[in-house]
Computed example of a mutant assay.
Amino acid sequence: MTSTLERHMVTIGGLRVGHGPAVVIGGRVSLRPHRGQVDAREALGERATLVEPYSAADLPAIAALADAVVVGATWTRDIPLVRAAAGLGLPVVVERRPSASVEEWVGLAGYCAAEGNDQVVLCEGGRLDLGVLRAARAASGRPVLADVSRDPGLAAAAVAAGADGLVVAGPGGSGGSGASGRADEAADVRAAEEAVTLVGALLRPESPATLAECREAIDRVDAALATLLERRAALAGVVQRLKPVGGFAGRDLARERALVARMATRAPQLGEERLAAVMNAVIEAGLHLAEERARR
């Protein structure tokens, strides 16, 4: 199997995973800590996005209250439970055991498909192996999530590795509780959304089919562009302090022309003439900013 396989797309809670931009899924909940001693409906309380059962007894409640069922890494060898979970008709998120190969991981998704449920998403969690994530996505054609609940700092790297979405556990899934747990989750979700917006805009190809989707894609690119322009302006300010002659008088037009020529190799459709106009505006904005700061 290769990356040329037709890409699957699975809808989870209204989010299209595997099609278009990467997504952020919050609220992964595991019923395993309850060890079957608490009724699943009582433990969930309200609708959740991703829910991992403790046993088959939890499945009816999950069918009623969850957007997707999680085949947790700790029970991926329990094939009867895997098949029962797939039989709910919900999307199935299949986690990888830390020692499992790509073939084993993808094969487990095949058990779900054998139950007539092809709404399968692979999920890499725990200590993320981004190389395995990328390989599984290419080999299976299925969407792949990265659960960054333990280390939200890996969100950007996971998107860069090709993750179709990021999972951020809710307080019930990550062990947090109360206002502190909710605040931590909100911060983690913001970090994940930032990674999806900025890294995704730079590295994830999109083919929007509607005007709304196209505008959303443009918004992501514009957000990434604004971030890069702000960084460029800061670096340009450092250059002004280091140059013997700063400001507009110190412009190196030959270097600017060479810069535009290099950029044109990355943006041939824009070409040097259009890029020259854009970069002149960028450079002048940075110089004006540097002058304003110097006067303060």
Rank of each mutant, 00 (worst) to 15 (best):
T2K: 09
G13Y: 05
L15H: 13
A22L: 02
R28P: 00
L31Y: 08
R41T: 13
E42R: 15
L44A: 09
G45V: 04
E46P: 00
R47L: 06
A48L: 08
V51F: 06
A56Q: 13
L59E: 06
L65S: 11
L65V: 09
A66K: 12
V69L: 11
V70A: 11
V70C: 09
V71Y: 07
G72S: 14
W75F: 15
P80Q: 12
L81T: 03
V82G: 10
A86F: 02
L88R: 13
L90I: 10
P91N: 09
V92D: 05
E95T: 11
P98T: 12
W105G: 10
V106F: 01
C112F: 05
C112I: 02
A114S: 12
G116H: 05
N117H: 04
C123P: 03
R127N: 13
L128A: 05
L128E: 01
L130G: 06
V132D: 04
R134F: 04
A135Q: 15
G141Y: 02
D147G: 05
D147R: 06
P152L: 05
L154V: 00
A157L: 11
A157H: 09
A158V: 02
V159P: 00
A160D: 05
D164N: 14
D164K: 10
G173P: 02
G173Y: 01
S174Y: 07
S174R: 08
A179C: 01
A183Q: 13
D184A: 15
A186E: 09
A186C: 08
A187E: 07
R190F: 06
A192V: 03
A192T: 04
E194R: 15
L198Q: 01
A201H: 03
L202Q: 13
S207F: 13
S207G: 11
T210Y: 02
A212Y: 04
A212R: 13
E213P: 04
R215T: 07
I218E: 15
D219L: 12
D219F: 04
V221I: 14
V221T: 10
R232H: 11
A233M: 09
A234Q: 11
L235D: 05
G237N: 04
R241I: 02
L242Y: 00
L242S: 03
L242D: 00
L242N: 00
K243F: 01
V245P: 05
G250K: 05
R251D: 04
D252N: 12
R255S: 13
R255A: 15
R257A: 15
Q269K: 13
G271H: 03
E272V: 14
V278H: 07
L287D: 03
L289E: 14
A294F: 03
R295S: 14
